[in-house]
Design a protein around this nucleic acid. Structure first.
Lengths: 179, 179
DNA sequence: CGAGCGCTTGATTGAGTTCAAAAATCGTGG
DNA sequence: CCACGATTTTTGAACTCAATCAAGCGCTCG
């Protein structure tokens, strides 16, 4: 995914921070959004919709970057909350960390590839959300985050997949029945 | 969206091409994928799923960039078809056009922002696909592509939104009834 | 040890799909 | 420019998958 070495060298003014499980790092409405690199631990970002329902946009275990990139790029208040699911150590970047003109060429080229990879993953997710039935979505989650099924509660997985915890439960029992 | 000036200056070895309506520019399985900038006309990219059903991933009217970025970045064969919906003039880039090390710093920084914006749009789409009912999805389409409702048939809009043409038809009749 | 949260299971409901067919629109050749 | 066939859109009925509603079980941690 995102190579730690590449990230670190491309972030001259990044700051290191620690958060405890349960802390909310960024809130919807905040203007002060930054990309966050996870060194250790686990974060999630999520949207609260008009009916008060939570939709998880992504998880960020070790070596992932998380943030409301849409809000950052368009200089709008964040739509997303970012919350700490395990005690975590992170690096908070500057907003423009990935395209700051003070970076050197290698770093900029590297960063463009980091963004490219993220687009690739998002493309895959969009195609998945559009076509795939609930069971296939769960498989997709297992591929994307092989280490997470044991680290996050099922209701969060369901929220990430856009299905209810009940549906996920029945999918899982169906899978284990088939074995 | 993507500023034509920025794109052109950042693409030293790009080639210009013309396609007629109905031509297929790239096919699933091709290894020779490139990002394509649309100067004039309209393209679409789409996936054929295991049941033979077409899912439109995106439309690219004037000034958009289209391509199977996932396939390019991971150097895999394309999953997506790219097809010409109107006679079009396009610029075919090199695969690494956006992060080629020969580009200068301004160009690289600019390109990173182009990618950033695309991520922002994808983020929005993922959140939309996850939560929103069919009627809201149609509204989202109208916002994203204000000029397209008259240029593409409804069945394609439905395919882009992940709903059936029948459902879209009933949504539209409901909307016009409310006025 | 009890209260609350998370997971499971079953019954009911509902949004959207599928199937089918009619109505409207488009495109092409005469 | 019209006519005809093909495609697209609309409409309606039956069905399906997943959501909602509801109840019960098992943990955890307070």
């Amino acid at each position: 995914m995102n190579n730690i070495k590449d990230i670190l060298k491309s972030a001259p003014k990044a700051t290191q921070k620690s958060y405890k499980k349960g802390e909310i790092i960024q809130r919807a409405g905040d203007f002060n959004n930054s990309p966050i690199y996870v060194k250790k631990g686990l974060l999630k970002s999520y949207l609260i919709d008009s009916k008060g329902k939570e939709h998880i946009y992504m998880f960020a275990p070790e070596n992932w970057i998380i943030g409301d990139l849409e809000a950052i790029q368009y200089e709008q208040p964040s739509q997303l909350f970012i919350e700490c699911l395990e005690d975590s150590e992170v690096i908070v970047f500057q907003k423009d960390c990935l395209f700051n003109i003070e970076l050197d060429k290698e770093q900029l080229a590297e960063n463009a590839q980091v963004l490219y990879r993220r687009i690739g993953r998002l493309q895959r997710r969009v195609l998945m959300l559009m076509g795939a039935p609930a069971a296939d979505r769960y498989m997709y989650f297992l591929e994307t985050y092989p280490e997470l099924p044991n680290r996050v509660p099922q209701k969060m997985i369901a929220s990430y997949l856009g299905i209810t915890p009940q549906t996920l439960s029945s999918i899982r029992s169906e899978i284990s029945r088939k074995k």
